[in-house]
Design a binder for these strands. Sequence first.
DNA 1: GAATGTGAAGGTTTTCACAGCA
DNA 2: TGCTGTGAAAACCTTCACATTC
Lengths: 216, 216
Amino acid sequence: MAKKKISESTIRRLSLYYRALSVLEKENHQTVSSKELAKREKLTPAQVRKDLSFFGSFGTRGLGYPVAELRNQVASILGINRLWKVALFGVGNIGSALVSYKEFARQGFRIVKLFDNDQRKIGSNHKGIIISDVRNMNKEIAEANVEIAVIAVPATVAQYIVDDVVDHGIKAILNFAPINLKVPDDVYLRNENMSMELEYLSFAMVNNHTQKRPKV
Amino acid sequence: MAKKKISESTIRRLSLYYRALSVLEKENHQTVSSKELAKREKLTPAQVRKDLSFFGSFGTRGLGYPVAELRNQVASILGINRLWKVALFGVGNIGSALVSYKEFARQGFRIVKLFDNDQRKIGSNHKGIIISDVRNMNKEIAEANVEIAVIAVPATVAQYIVDDVVDHGIKAILNFAPINLKVPDDVYLRNENMSMELEYLSFAMVNNHTQKRPKV
DNA sequence: GAATGTGAAGGTTTTCACAGCA
DNA sequence: TGCTGTGAAAACCTTCACATTC
């Protein structure tokens, strides 16, 4: 399953389906058509059906998809039907916001470790988690079974932190620093670039850019 | 200029070029080749040349692109060679992080207004900006010449805020709430969905997904 | 020689349209 | 009848390769 080449866009849309299905379930819908699902996430019905068909036949012709079941299936495809332990590096503005960001927890991403290099922060309790010295990451990452690192340190030091994190066996990194990080081929890296979306808006306004459905 | 159909991917890559060019300028490079620019942002030289060629001929054959000049050109294409006034709705975790997010300011996006509905916050000074009552947005948005709204309120109220914001003439919205907002056709809307990237990492790990260059 | 700019080729993703099933 | 699942077609995007220019 999922062994061909699934496109990045498809994976990102699965996140949207998951979100929509969660809402539908809360609204007590039993089934949902590709049309309705598409409408809720501004996609096309054909797109929804095609995306899902890469992973199996989850629907019933004439009826649609069973909401609760499909939601579980999508969770399982995305790998979020389990708990992921996350370490956060850099408890500054962005970092502290992420600690309280409910969506992460809701999807099974639990921040279990906070690291910083500021002596004034180290040892203090931030929303229930003691902030550790980044120099102790070796021991602490292993002890806590952390599998994902979130980088929220300044761009100037991000590469150093990432090098260390990679040395300590982490294979998945989400980076908020506005810099292009280098990682080995077997490490998954994703970037969250918040200015990029504002720049897109700026471009659109200045150029009267006719907007298609935004790519997900 | 830029009147054909420029793809979303191209626009997003322009943001990357801009960032790389800023670094190159700081490093005192006079010129840069498409090869070097590509390397810095993990793209291909042909891609870089093609993207830029949609907007003009900025390079010199045999030499490359003039760094400072190209940076200005890209800024002008993106519309960030000017100041954009931004209003932020929701001074919670994410909201306050964004107020201090240096990258926004650096690219010409200045948060000039903060709105909240929490009486305890309204009237207080948050990092130099007085938090306004969201019910006064009408007057205040106009007075401050705000052109972009950033939505950092809970998902449950995001649509109401957006409806108001749209009523008051805002044509560009950046949404951080995990919900699909409805806006009229002439309003530009972009979503920042931070769980999506974590879900992508999760999918990749669970499925041993062979990663291409991440799409920008 | 070095590197851009760009048609044409190649590859990928989306949409179409319809057969097939409840 | 209604809606899925899916090959085929269409649209879109990236890469190639080379003529062109400095």
